[in-house]
Amino acid sequence: MKFLIITGMSGAGKSQAVKCMEDLGFYCLDNLPPVLISKFVELCRQSHGDIQKVGLVIDIRGGMFFDDLFASLDSITEFGYQYEILFLDASDGVLIKRFKETRRTHPLAPNGGIGDGIKEERQRLQKLKEMATNMIDTTKMTSGQLKEELRNIYFEGNKTNNLMIHITSFGFKHGIPLDSDLVFDVRFLPNPYYIEELRDFTGKDVKVRDFVMNSPISIEFSNKLYELVDFLIPHYIKEGKNQLVISIGCTGGRHRSVTIAYVLYHKLKEKGYRAILNHRDDTLGERKRD
């Protein structure tokens, strides 16, 4: 029997994760008081094999019962079973935005002060985060991307490490993404903007990508960029980094940066790395197409 503890920051996507895990055949139980974990494991043992994969959502909503979690997790191993911990996280800014959009109150700040609640929650979850088997940062993830990532890890079993790579295209005239770890300037590459029939399209369109990548400079740069990132990734993993944000910029963020980001993303995916592709500025300043 396999036990998965689903936990993490409030607003980071645990509800969506539960739905996905149920689709993958997990029997999921939300907000189980930790003190009852041993009782639940015993019930699962009595199922005579009917339950093979169990997902338990344990988080700060347990209130005063949360402090019983670590002793309760030991009870799983005492029964002879192993467990994994999935920790979902997101940046403070995104968590605050999600709470405001859903008009929910933070469980540790029922009277307001979402930021204070998030700060306290991070402190209380720190030990659990350090124990996590898998960690997913949903800051830049859509629901579909989260589902794909969970499926990759728990169904296809092709997880390679805890490092999630976010590849973002952007336009320098709109500013460099503040959360960038690595920034690459591709404004030296051939620019489709000066080709009338390509100007109103973006790097998402094959003809724009073909134009950019039809240059020996573009090919050489994209190969060297991949080689550099491939070299750096093991070192980031060794240092315990769980998120790497690679930002690739051109002037407007619609043609060259989108193309190179697309190429890098697919090369990393082919290598088996966990990667997500985002285009921050590809629709800004877009003219109506004929």
Results as ranks from 00 to 15, higher is better:
Leu128Ser: 05
Pro216Gly: 04
Glu22Leu: 02
Lys97Thr: 13
Leu29Ala: 11
Thr168Gly: 02
Leu146Thr: 04
Ala17Asp: 05
Gln52Glu: 15
Leu264Cys: 05
Gly203Asp: 00
Pro33Glu: 09
Asn111Pro: 07
Thr138Asp: 07
Gly11Ser: 11
Lys129Asp: 12
Lys39His: 14
Asp290Trp: 10
Leu146Ile: 06
Phe66Cys: 00
Leu24Trp: 01
Leu24Phe: 04
Asp68Asn: 09
Phe231Lys: 13
Ile60Gly: 02
Arg103Cys: 14
Glu220Pro: 03
His174Ile: 10
Ile246Gly: 02
Gly253Trp: 00
Arg61Thr: 04
Gly8Tyr: 01
Ala109Gln: 13
Phe188Asp: 11
Glu239Gln: 14
Leu264Thr: 01
Gly8Arg: 00
Val18Gln: 09
Leu95Cys: 09
Val54Trp: 07
Gly112Met: 03
Ala109Val: 12
Ser10Lys: 03
Leu56Arg: 05
Lys271Tyr: 00
Phe26Gly: 03
Thr142Met: 10
Glu270Ile: 01
Thr139Arg: 07
Arg103Ile: 11
His166Lys: 13
Ala17Thr: 04
Ala132Asn: 03
Arg187Ala: 02
Tyr83Lys: 09
Asn31Met: 12
Gln46Ile: 12
Gln145His: 04
Lys127Thr: 15
Lys140Leu: 11
Glu239Leu: 10
Ile176Ser: 12
Ala12Glu: 06
Leu146Pro: 06
Cys28Leu: 02
Glu197Phe: 12
Glu149Trp: 01
Leu178Asp: 14
Asn242Ser: 15
Glu42Ile: 06
Gly11Phe: 01
His166Tyr: 13
Cys28Arg: 06
Gly62Lys: 01
Ile85Thr: 00
Pro192Trp: 00
Thr168Leu: 10
Leu24Ile: 08
Gln16Ala: 10
Lys207Asn: 12
Lys173Tyr: 13
Ile96Gln: 10
Val258Ala: 06
Tyr154Pro: 05
Leu244Arg: 07
Ile96Thr: 14
Glu22Asp: 04
Ile248Pro: 02
Glu78Met: 13
His255Ala: 02
Arg103Tyr: 14
Gly240Cys: 05
Tyr273Leu: 06
Ser215Phe: 11
Ile76Lys: 00
Leu150Asn: 03
Gly171His: 10
Ala71Asn: 12
Arg280Ser: 00
Arg187Thr: 11
Gly80Glu: 11
Asp200Ser: 15
Phe172Cys: 06
Gly93Ile: 14
Glu78Ile: 11
Ser257Val: 08
